[in-house]
Design a protein around this nucleic acid. Structure first.
Lengths: 226, 226
DNA sequence: TCGTTTTGTAATATTTCTGTAACAGGGGTG
DNA sequence: CACCCCTGTTACAGAAATATTACAAAACGA
């Protein structure tokens, strides 16, 4: 009923991050923080309901990050930009990239929370765009959480589907068992890392030849590669 | 007696959507927004009393969308088109598709509201076209909220009928218990998700062999598929 | 109002999903 | 080679989710 929204904050000012994290957490949001665009991309962005991105960051800028998320990952997560600059230009770049809102520092927490709720509410009534990933003859529909191979549906369980999509979204990167556990299993359940193995095995069996695309490497974890 | 009218706005200009949403909501309408034709189709169009469609949209045009709604879904919801273009040609296409009215941007909110009320008033007195969905030998009449199988009436209760039509209108898509609850039960009543199960069970029993078309999948919800 | 129908809850049966354990194989290392 | 660590797979049992039934409360109509 009252679902917890997951928000990712990406900002290299650690102090600000802490303040935001504390305040938003106490508003009932589930917060995660990344201190750079690179760090953010290492996460499965897909599982957040909203991103708060700082425009000015060392390394990758917030806009660059947003662009990657939209274009390369093909995700349409709502994004709110935080910026110290107030030029028209920035605003424009932000919205071109598909920003859902824009907030100039300094801003009040109250205002931020209001904007966040507005964006989430908006997203609620709107059906998300098709998020379909195609790998040869295999299609993952992230919305419907369905998989087809040669147009034939493959019945995956929840965990199997989540593991598969996590691997596919990070195609080419080895994800450790721990990373997979952290992301897919809820915090309060404690399970063995071996569990990932078992689920991977089941998954492999179900997706036939594509099972070979899931590489396991000793000491590294798993990776999808075709 | 003073029923709230549900209006769906489909337009890819988010700013305009917001303005419309705000203004129409404060006129007492119940507004939902979709930012593309595809998004709109993902909704149960059936539950709206009026559609406001932008003609020019990325992806599916408003005309295309209207056409699908009329032909494929077989719905006769009133439609008002919004357009920046004012050519005769457009007007014609619009009315061919079964437009109820036509408004060129820029228009005043006041004018829009007037037209909306006019269309709704008109729809009220006029006999609505049949909205009948046929699945093999099963017929759902969305107007009369009646179902027949082999011409024989099947007496469904209100909840049963709504669940069935929701599933049928989203044929092939798994709908979670929560989605079903949200749409069919009013917000202020709090009921268990188990309730959906019970109603599905009753429904299945009543519609005989078609009960098999209602697939239940652990962790995903229910789906109609034949 | 009464009787009927509809709807919700709770309890129970059943199915599906998931975690653990156990075992088998692979590959490196002493 | 023998050993150990890591991985892949299978089988089983416990857990979770779902289906169904029975009953009570609420809504509805006459």
């Amino acid at each position: 009923m009252n679902e917890t929204y997951k928000i990712l904050i990406v900002d290299d000012e650690k102090d600000l991050c802490e303040i935001l994290q504390f305040n938003l957490a106490s508003e009932g949001f589930d917060i995660e923080v990344a201190y750079s665009g690179e760090e953010a991309l290492a996460k499965t962005i897909d599982r957040f309901d909203l991103l708060l991105l700082d425009v000015m960051m060392g390394g990758m800028s917030g806009f660059k990050l947003a662009d990657k998320i939209r274009k390369e990952l093909g995700l349409s997560v709502p994004i709110i930009f935080l910026t110290a600059r107030e030029t028209e230009n920035d605003m424009l770049t932000g919205f071109n990239v598909g920003a859902d809102d824009y907030l100039s520092k300094p801003f009040s927490i109250k205002e931020l929370v209001a904007r966040i709720r507005a964006v989430l509410r908006r997203g609620k009534s709107v059906e998300v765009k098709a998020k379909v990933i195609t790998i040869d003859s295999m299609e993952l529909d992230l919305n419907r959480k369905s998989v087809t191979i040669d147009r034939t549906p493959v019945l995956l369980t929840r965990k199997e589907f989540e593991i598969l999509s996590m691997l596919v979204l990070h195609k080419g990167k080895y994800l450790s068992r721990q990373e997979i556990l952290d992301r897919i299993w809820s915090d309060d359940v404690i399970v063995t890392e071996r569990n990932v193995d078992v689920n991977i095995a089941r998954l492999r069996k179900k997706i036939g030849e594509f099972g070979q695309c899931i590489k396991g490497r000793s000491g590294y974890g798993y990776c999808f590669e075709n």
